[in-house]
Design a protein around this nucleic acid. Structure first.
Length: 319
DNA sequence: CGCTTTTGACCAGCGC
DNA sequence: GCGCTGGTCAAAAGCG
């Protein structure tokens, strides 16, 4: 799949992709979180490289997103969500040569596997709840019959000094493994909420240690215990206040308010070059305060920056 | 005391 | 069959 090639290529070149290239900046996320497979959008940058508040823009779209999205937004300053990818993507599944555009078969197969496995995931889950294996043997047999049932996955890279990014949910670490060809271990986390099977893997990029790759698997079956979800009505009817509708306990409030109040930003313009499709086609959610400077936005309009080096030209033209 | 983290062992899948 | 690797388990240790 081309998308995966692009992701790998991006990693190999140690380059940030530029601004988004889809008319709907979060369409890829939507597709994936809904359990569908989107080949049209493999990854996107949510904010420009080097900007330090991309997290906010994710939360900006919270009311439009499925339940999984909040967990995708690490609440850290100086964290740039650089890419997402719609499959089981591992930094270590890279081509042997830096310039190679080929991808590992394991990576591709993982995607295919998910495509078939996801079909009956809900049914299987229900079945599990009603038919709990009682012994280890039964558990083993059950596992064998399931043959690696997997939830949809969502991987993205963030630039952060912190490995385990706070995302509003509580996680319990259940494993850590050394990663082949990498000095950095991979950590495995599970959502602590009972009956919630969401997992995530966290690992640091071998090529760029400042980059953390987080892979989420599954969707939360419960609201965030640490971050109350905003309601559409509240968001749409009033000027959303970060303190009331987007409380992010792990993120310094001062930082948030700083960005909200002093960094004019329109994500739609940023992505589409002036056509505010996201807000217009969204849920009616609308925000007065914006995130990036007009200067930044206009620069993105005329210059794709690093994106044009990475994203195939035909994708850039798709806007 | 309860919850989380650590860490070695174990298992499954895959390629050779 | 064997070795490698990714993923998970579970007992022990750590922590508040």
């Amino acid at each position: 799949m081309d998308v995966k090639k692009d992701v790998v290529k991006m990693e190999d070149n140690r380059t940030n992709i530029g601004c988004g290239f889809s008319s709907s900046p979060f369409s890829g996320i939507f597709d994936f979180c809904e359990g569908e497979k989107s080949s049209s959008l493999g990854f996107m940058e949510l904010l420009g490289a080097g900007q330090d508040f991309c997290t906010n823009s994710l939360f900006d779209y919270l009311p439009q997103t499925p339940s999984m999205l909040p967990s995708l937004a690490p609440n850290f300053p100086n964290t740039s969500i650089m890419a997402k990818e719609c499959s089981d993507y591992s930094l270590n599944q890279q081509p042997a040569t830096p310039n190679s555009s080929s991808i590992s078969s394991a990576s591709s197969e993982a995607l295919n596997e998910e495509q078939t496995d996801n079909k009956g995931a809900a049914d299987q889950l229900e079945e599990e709840e009603h038919d709990q294996p009682k012994t280890k043997k039964e558990l083993k047999a059950k596992k064998a019959s399931q043959k690696r049932q997997r939830e949809p996955r969502f991987a993205f890279m963030t630039k952060s000094e912190v490995d385990h990014l706070e995302d509003g949910y509580r996680w319990r670490k259940y494993g850590q493994k050394a990663v082949k060809n990498s000095p950095f271990p991979r950590s495995y986390y599970r959502c602590t909420s009972t009956a919630c099977n969401v997992k995530k893997r966290v690992e640091r990029s071998f090529n760029d240690p400042s980059i953390v790759v987080t892979t989420y698997e599954g969707q939360h079956t419960h609201p965030s215990p640490l971050m109350p979800r905003p309601t559409l009505t509240a968001s749409a009817s009033a000027q959303p206040s970060i303190s009331t509708t987007f409380a992010m306990p792990s993120m310094p409030r001062t930082l948030l308010s700083h960005h909200y109040q002093q960094q004019p930003f329109n994500f739609c313009n940023y992505v589409n070059g002036g056509s505010p499709t996201a807000n217009a086609s969204g849920t009616g959610f609308h925000r007065e305060r914006r995130f990036c400077t007009p200067a930044t936005g206009s620069a993105m309009l005329t210059d794709h920056g690093l994106l044009q080096d990475i994203v195939p030209s035909h994708m850039l033209k798709q806007e």
